[in-house]
Amino acid sequence: MPEMGFVQQLGIGALMTIKVAVLSYLLALAIGTAFALVTLRRRLVVGFIWQVYASIFTGVPSLLVAFLFFYAGSGIVASLASLVGLTVTVDISPFAAAVAALGMVYGAYLADLIRSAIQNVPPGQFEAAKVLLVPQPATWLLVILPQVLRLALPGMTNMWIVVMKDTALISLIGLKEIMAYAKLASGVTKEPFIYYVLASVFFLGMTWLTYFVSRRIESWSERGYKPVVKQEPAHAL
């Protein structure tokens, strides 16, 4: 039987895992949305910046990015500050390095996903809003974004699950999340099977909860939408 002290530590680690995953995903969503919007119109400078960003963060493993941020982040910030004549000393914590690494890596993937969803919105939606003199902010907020959500939701759901599972790698930079506590408990009690199974149950539970919530959001986003061909759910649950 697992010791209650270690089970409590697993609970603390689970909360840290959720915290890192949520903040990383929100950062990735903000970065992805920003790049998706600015790259809709083909501009040379913006396109070059996007290509450099996407090439770096889709070509380098997220764990390696976390290592770079954790061990070299302070030096990078100090070097950038020195370019404008400032002297800055920043201590990069494992938590900050984890959130920044996962957010910036998966922001590149979400940018392509969101941009594709926007481009798949029928052009007539934009034209109808323009003819009806709907203000552009209202057009995006009330007309376009609900349709983008419906189109991008399956990919965004899968991306959230990938981000959540990638938090298991971040224990290698010293962050005390659920896998770090599972490893600690396994080493002390010599019962790795029990604690790694408990960690697996946590991730499976979070995955099930994600699919449950995504189905509710999918039902909400499809109100009033009648597809020509009815599509089955993309996932197994």
Rank of each mutant, 00 (worst) to 15 (best):
L29I: 02
A180Q: 09
I144V: 15
G73A: 11
F69N: 00
I178G: 03
Q125P: 01
P146G: 12
G85D: 01
V7T: 11
V121Q: 10
A78H: 06
I173N: 03
S171M: 14
F203M: 05
A182R: 02
V162R: 00
A168G: 05
L142S: 11
G85F: 10
Q125R: 06
L23F: 14
V228A: 02
V121R: 06
G103Q: 10
I92L: 08
L80F: 15
Y211N: 13
E127V: 00
Q51V: 00
R41V: 02
E127D: 15
M4A: 12
V99N: 03
V148D: 05
L149R: 07
T17R: 10
Q147W: 11
A14Q: 07
P122C: 07
A236T: 11
T207C: 14
R223W: 07
L15N: 08
L27E: 10
L184R: 08
L26G: 08
V148S: 08
L40R: 15
G85C: 08
A152M: 04
P122N: 12
V163I: 15
L149N: 01
L44E: 04
Q8T: 10
Y71K: 02
L83E: 08
R150D: 07
M159W: 00
G59D: 13
A36H: 08
A14D: 03
P233E: 00
V162T: 13
M206G: 11
Y25V: 08
G103K: 09
E191G: 07
T139P: 05
L102E: 04
I118D: 03
V38E: 05
K190R: 13
M16Q: 10
Q8K: 14
L141Y: 14
E3D: 15
L237D: 04
T33A: 11
F193D: 07
V201Q: 00
V201M: 08
Q9S: 12
D91V: 13
L145C: 06
Q119P: 00
L198T: 02
A236P: 01
L142N: 11
S24G: 15
G174S: 09
L153P: 12
A236C: 01
L132D: 05
V99Y: 03
M4V: 08
V213T: 07
L83N: 10
M104K: 03
L237I: 11
G47E: 09
P94H: 04
L10C: 00
W160Q: 05
A34W: 15
V22H: 08
P154H: 09
I170C: 00
L37E: 04
A54Y: 15
R115E: 03
V213G: 00
V90S: 10
A66G: 09
S214V: 07
T210S: 12
L141V: 04
L204V: 13
R216W: 12
L80Y: 14
L37S: 02
L27N: 06
T207D: 09
L237N: 11
V65D: 03
A138F: 09
A100Q: 00
A54R: 02
S116V: 04
E177Y: 04
F57M: 01
L110R: 08
R223F: 06
I170P: 01
A117C: 09
Q231S: 14
T89S: 15
T58I: 04
T17N: 05
I217L: 14
I12E: 12
Q125S: 13
D91E: 13
L133I: 12
F35D: 07
